[in-house]
């Protein structure tokens, strides 16, 4: 049998056997038999050295051709066996609808999430996030914010006082009723221009019910510089509302009173539920009050030694719990601090 005939025989035999193969093991044996080091094809190729140059050319070309051909059919067979594997061996198939092995996943508290998100927005507008003490002197919490003793404005913020008496027999220590004392603390240290936001806990003397708790969270903002106007206050808070509540959410300002600002304003956004049409959530007004703000009162600026005829500024303060309550329709503020994982794991 000539070498070329031998090659032809190998090819016929290989293709014929390959056809019958139905699993990977047999295929592997086939590969060894026809394409391995000790295969007949390799033997033929090794024998080439003994041939004349003329024969080498034709036989070599045919043998290489066969090698390529076998590689191609092998690959094809491998692929088709891959498909057959599942349909043929159903009992080994995976049910991809079984749950995955999840790495454990915790949940950030919804209040932390809101603080993070709001700080991010204000930081991107050039504000710096700072924090301050929760136990405060009435000097920072009231006096320096233009809320004198025996003034009804103090009654609006029912205060929890600390059992502490100084040498003068005064009892000036309290749990801060708002984050605003940080306005004074920061302005005492840093000269304008300044822009800060202050997230933190505040406390009020409140009986606990679905809408009142003695501890809650606020975020405060303050910007002081030459030439800051009420128009800047509006612009900054509009921008915040657009970014936080979405660009189609309308916001409006109206006059309100806080002793440490003048003029004072309150910002409302279009009701999240009814989009302004009027519903139970917004008491049919179409608007939801979300923050109080205003131009820093000249007395507050002068109190920390900032010349109020040269500098001006705005401040704002917002209750944090109200925001997720409105967003998610939560009707009981106590849920935030009750630690019930069935609630907290939803956020």
């Amino acid at each position: 049998m000539s070498i070329l005939e031998q090659l032809e025989e190998i090819k016929t035999q290989a293709l014929c056997e390959l056809d019958a193969i139905d699993d990977n093991k047999k295929l592997d044996l086939w590969r060894v038999q026809y394409m391995g080091k000790k295969s007949r094809l390799n033997e033929v190729l090794r024998g080439l050295a003994a041939l004349s140059i003329e024969e080498k050319k034709t036989v070599g070309a045919t043998a290489n051709q066969l090698k390529l051909e076998l590689e191609a059919v092998l690959k094809e067979k491998e692929l088709s066996l891959g498909d057959m594997f599942i349909s043929a061996k159903g009992e080994d198939a995976i049910d991809i609808s079984l749950p995955g092995r999840k790495p454990p996943l915790g949940h950030l508290h919804p209040i932390s999430q809101v603080i993070d998100e709001m700080c991010r927005i204000f930081v991107s507008m050039g504000f710096q996030a700072v924090e301050g003490p929760e136990v405060e002197w009435d000097y920072y919490n009231f006096d320096m914010l233009n809320i004198p003793k025996e003034h009804p404005a103090r009654d609006n913020m029912q205060t929890l006082w600390v059992d502490y008496e100084n040498e003068k027999g005064e009892r000036p220590m309290l749990l801060r009723t708002h984050t605003s004392p940080m306005q004074v603390r920061v302005m005492e240290k840093i000269k304008p221009p300044l822009r800060i936001v202050v997230p933190g806990k505040v406390y009020r003397y409140e009986a606990i019910d679905a809408t009142h708790i003695p501890m809650f969270t606020q975020i405060e903002g303050l910007a002081v510089d030459k030439g800051i106007t009420l128009a800047d206050l509006k612009g900054t808070l509009y921008e915040f509302a657009r970014r936080y509540f979405g660009s189609d959410r309308k916001a409006r300002f109206r006059c309100d009173f806080f002793p440490f600002v003048e003029p004072g304003v309150e910002m409302s956004i279009e009701c999240i539920v009814c989009k302004g049409a009027g519903c139970r959530l917004c008491s049919n007004s179409g608007w939801l009050e979300i923050l109080g703000a205003g131009m820093v009162h000249p007395r507050v600026l002068e109190g920390v030694g900032i010349d109020s005829t040269v500098y001006s500024g705005f401040a704002f303060g917002m209750g944090i719990e109200r925001i997720p309550m409105l967003r998610y329709g939560i009707d009981d503020i106590r849920l935030f601090y009750g630690g019930d994982l069935r609630f907290l794991r939803q956020f």
Partner: peptide, 22 residues
């Protein structure tokens, strides 16, 4: 403040802070 609240806050323009950031 009297002027602002009676003329209306909606009639006050809206601008963004333009000063330098310390």
């Amino acid at each position: 403040e009297e002027l602002a609240r009676i003329i209306g806050y909606e009639n006050i323009p809206t601008t963004l802070l333009s000063g330098s950031i310390a």
